[in-house]
């Protein structure tokens, strides 16, 4: 597995967990919410979201159940588990550390001058 692919996969996982932190949602809602919060900068083939959701469910980070509102199609709704809540906090912390580190590199920080 390439590093880039691994990074993108873990980003997808983090984004899904973060969106679910605010409450249970179905797949369409999750995808739209990621796009909305990122001002449509982050977009993706929506069909590839479901394998991410299934993997998270397999890892017990999220749980799901069918919901069948009157007169509408049945949909599967996903919600964070307790383990998922702990994981999302860790993921956010680690993302913030990473982001701060990148900012520092970009800003330079007045270190040693180039030779």
């Amino acid at each position: 597995m390439s590093e880039e692919r691994g990074l993108q996969k873990s980003s997808a996982t983090t984004l899904v967990l973060v969106v679910l932190r605010d409450g249970a949602r179905h797949g369409y809602d999750i995808a739209r919410e990621v796009e909305r919060r990122s001002d449509n900068v982050i977009s993706f083939n929506h069909g590839t979201l479901y394998p991410v959701l299934y993997a998270l469910e397999k890892s017990n980070l999220i749980a799901s159940q069918w919901e069948h509102p009157e007169g509408e199609r049945r949909r599967r709704v996903y919600a964070l588990t307790d383990e998922g809540r702990r994981e999302v906090e860790k993921a956010i912390q680690s993302w913030n550390d990473f982001s701060r580190a990148i900012d520092k590199v970009i800003e330079g920080g007045g270190g040693a001058q180039p030779v």
Partner: peptide, 20 residues
Amino acid sequence: RTYGEPGQVSDRYLESFYEN
């Protein structure tokens, strides 16, 4: 189109199915 090219979607699903 937004949902994705069928081959790509099914490949991604199968990969995940096996990994899990």
